[in-house]
């Protein structure tokens, strides 16, 4: 479970104040709002990539407000996938496991299993260059899930995709939601996407979050 209590998150001169939210295990919460309102800043603050000057952040009861990004039990899928260059997809997806000291053989098995689940097994020998938007997002999602996180942060994961790819990717995300073993914090400005995926939605304006309201899940 992710709990933010009155966080103040700084991104250069911009800051988000009094950010409080709670995402239970198995819950999917979406933050919506116009461009520049601070959605990504909240996500990056929770991930440990932005300075938090006040408030507290707990994950499964442990205070991780000032913990290093990699020790929070969070995974991130950025808007552009942020795939690592100069290596094959298999190597790239295995990096979170390599950082955790998982042996090469076990890493390879885990990556292959995840790739099979996400339908990207045929991409494992390729490099990031030349992959389509949908392929990049699936790889980024697989890489994030291989960390076995408690909290999954998604930063506009479908915004750069065409309609067909978006629909396919949405199905993959729905499957993750229906498994119910993660707290998911999702940022988007697409109401249709939020309604399909989220259990609860919050609106963000000028660095302030609204109270959550129920999304109409299909």
């Amino acid at each position: 479970m992710l709990t933010c209590d009155a966080l103040t998150i700084h991104a250069g001169r911009f800051h988000v104040t009094n950010c409080s939210l709670q995402v239970e295990r198995g819950q999917w919460q979406t933050i919506m709002g116009p461009t520049g309102c601070g959605k990504t800043t909240v996500l990056e603050g929770i991930c440990g990539l932005r300075y938090i000057s006040s408030g507290s952040l707990t994950i499964n009861g442990a205070d991780v407000t000032h913990a290093p990004p990699g020790q929070r039990g969070i995974s991130l899928v950025p808007q552009d996938g942020a795939l690592f260059a100069g290596m094959r997809v298999e190597q790239m997806m295995g990096i979170p496991l390599r950082a955790r000291g998982v042996r090469r053989k076990d890493r390879s098995t885990a990556v292959r299993d995840m790739a099979a689940q996400l339908g990207i097994a045929s991409l494992l020998r390729r490099s990031a260059a030349g992959l389509s938007g949908g392929e990049r997002q699936r790889i980024a999602l697989g890489r994030a899930l291989l960390c076995k996180p408690s909290v999954l942060c998604l930063d506009e994961p479908l915004s750069a995709l065409d309609m067909e790819t978006k629909a396919a990717m949405r199905t993959v995300l729905q499957r993750i939601r229906d498994k119910g073993d993660l707290s998911v914090l999702h940022v988007t400005h697409d109401m249709a996407e939020a309604k399909v995926l989220a259990h609860t939605i919050r609106i963000m304006e000028d660095g302030q979050l609204s109270i959550p309201f129920e999304a109409t899940c299909p």
């Binding site: 991930c47 290093p68 942020a82 990096i95 979170p96 950082a99 994030a144």
Partner: peptide
């Protein structure tokens, strides 16, 4: 990308 790598567990 380095930031994302750190979120994913890298030092």
């Amino acid at each position: 990308r380095e930031h994302v790598a750190q979120v994913l567990g890298c030092t």
